[in-house]
């Protein structure tokens, strides 16, 4: 477990030192919720629960995109410059390396997503004059569902970036992001009561998120050292 903390801690420190990635993440964290706030208010009218559902629907895609941004620094950069080859020669198992990096990506991505959610709530409160911050399901959503989905997406994107060549990664990165967003929208549509926030919707998202974390672990377990080394540019 000690090495897990060493790897995750290093990725977090490096993320905080990468000015270009932080600026990209900050712009997205502010621009996207502000632009979405008008649509959420217009669609929900004055109903606080429906507005909370709109905010919940925004936060997971934001979190996934944040994970994608930070994955580029943690997984892809080390593959591009070849550092990953040295890391694979340490006594750390490939799974532990992947886990540490995924956590190191997920934590800053989650922090940026919470900042984004705060901006969204502030923007909607300003536009609609409604306070939604005290909605318990929204708080539960931000505290549990969002981090699970960020971990799942960061893990899957990271595993793909380790296993694939540079060109395939450019294509697959976007496919994964849109795939995740498609799954979220699909789950919310099939949930009883339709889009919005409800205990059933949150339950479905929680189960799906945990299943995706398990799938990410399974996928990462299939990646081999040879596969990674042979796809280093």
């Amino acid at each position: 477990m000690k090495t897990l903390g060493v790897i995750a801690g290093r990725e977090m420190r490096l993320a905080l030192r990468n000015r270009s990635i932080l600026i990209t993440a900050a712009i997205f964290a502010i621009w996207f919720p502000v632009m979405s706030a008008f649509g959420v208010v217009a669609g929900a009218g004055g109903d606080a629960a429906t507005i909370a559902g709109g905010i919940a629907a925004i936060t997971i895609p934001v979190g996934i995109f944040m994970g994608y941004i930070f994955c580029a620094d943690a997984f892809l950069r080390e593959k591009r410059d070849g550092t990953i080859e040295t890391l694979l020669c340490t006594p750390v198992s490939l799974r532990r390396l992947w886990e540490g990096k995924a956590i190191g990506v997920a934590v800053p991505a989650y922090v940026m997503t919470l900042i984004s959610a705060t901006v969204t709530i502030a923007a909607i409160s300003t536009i609609a004059g409604i306070t939604v911050v005290t909605e318990p399901l929204l708080l539960l959503h931000l505290a549990t569902i969002v981090p699970v989905w960020i971990v799942a997406s960061a893990g899957l994107i990271g595993a793909a970036q380790l296993a694939l060549g540079m060109r395939e990664n450019q294509i697959l990165g976007f496919l994964l992001i849109f795939g995740f967003i498609f799954i979220i929208i699909g789950l919310q549509e099939v949930a009883p009561g339709g889009p919005g926030i409800s205990p059933v919707t949150e339950g479905i998202l929680a189960v799906a998120g945990i299943a995706l974390v398990a799938f990410a672990r399974f996928t990462a377990g299939r990646v081999t050292r040879e596969r990674i080394v042979l796809t280093i540019p």
Partner: peptide
């Protein structure tokens, strides 16, 4: 995995982070 603790390696890229 444990045996790798007894082995050191230097590839062309040095295995270092420029930002540390």
């Amino acid at each position: 995995d444990d045996a790798r603790a007894k082995v050191g390696v230097l590839f062309e890229n040095n295995g270092l982070s420029d930002r540390m």
